[in-house]
Amino acid sequence: MNVTVAIDAGETPQSASEAGPAPKRIVVAYGFWIFLLSDIVMFSALFAGYAVLRHATAGGPNGAELFNLGRVAIETACLLASSYTCGLMALAVNSRRRLATYVTALLTFALGAAFLALEIREFADMIAHGASPQRSAFLSAFFALVGCHGLHVAAGLIWIVVMMAQVASKGFRPPVLRRLQCFSLFWHALDIIWVGLFTVVYLMGVAA
């Protein structure tokens, strides 16, 4: 009996009470992960609203008439590439290379800004053609869902500028590293939401 106890103590990983509190970076990233999941739950409500109201066009234009898949493909490419450069930025940060961090952050920002510019142009075109949010329930749901994602991207762009200023002025200190970690989680989560978005809104809207 003593033998089994000794083996257990030696081989099983430490229990939470023995290991003590987790390091701060893990606690921070886990908390931010919970926030991101709750953000995704909020998006799921907007998705549900859009899916329910998809055919409520009130005689106005429907998705197949409004959406330009070529532009959506470019937007998708921009966001996917910026997610990739954000991953490269995380690698550069992990190995504490300052120049590589700036370059990849600049690429991430440029691609995200290109995405946002294309989306704003799309909204402006739709509103110019009379497809504004107040035209039909379908368009209200569309602008709420896609616009909310666009707002998140805009917030991410501001965030990355702030982070680069912090890296420049404070260097790779632990708090700055934790914020950079949260930023890359945020940016990858936005790309996951965009995958659902271009599938449900644009591709299914054009196909159906």
Binding site: P13, Q14, A19, A22, P23, R25, I26, V28, A29, Y30, F32, W33, Y84, G87, L88, A90, L91, N94, S95, Q181, S184, L185, H188
Partner: peptide, 28 residues
């Protein structure tokens, strides 16, 4: 034995290791 939970977004326990960059690049 160091047993910590891994933060979301971390690649492995070795993220602080400089050598992890090339395998990280491959994963991305």
């Amino acid at each position: 034995t160091e047993h910590f939970d891994r933060a979301p977004g971390d690649q492995s326990m070795l993220t602080d290791n400089e050598e992890a960059t090339s395998s990280g690049l491959l994963i991305y």
